[in-house]
């Protein structure tokens, strides 16, 4: 990529450049989507803890001590890594 020259407003020229606008827009959309997914999952988790802790404390089946919260919690860590 060439360095911008010192004409009157090189930055504005770049800002008006459709490629630059696409870049900013795409990057923004990507970050937005990523944050949205993460937030949705995390909010659900926190709200569960706050208002229905029993749900996470529910055993996965009869005869097991593993609660629903374990796969959900560990799953969220994995999602955070993958995202």
């Amino acid at each position: 990529m060439a360095r911008p020259t010192d004409d009157a407003s090189p930055w504005q020229a770049i800002q008006r450049n459709p490629t630059f606008q696409t870049l900013v827009e795409r990057r923004g959309r990507f970050a937005t989507r990523l944050s949205l997914i993460m937030m949705a999952l995390y909010f659900t988790f926190i709200l569960l803890i706050a208002f229905a802790p029993g749900v996470l404390g529910m055993p996965l089946g009869s005869g097991t001590v593993i609660t629903l919260g374990i796969p959900i919690g560990l799953g969220l860590i994995v999602v955070a890594i993958v995202c």
Binding site: A31, M38, F45, G73
Partner: peptide, 21 residues
Amino acid sequence: GYDGLIYSMGFLVGWPIIMFL
């Protein structure tokens, strides 16, 4: 027990997004 997992998660989920920004 489980509360320890919640603690690590609160941190893990927030930090990468901020750093990402």
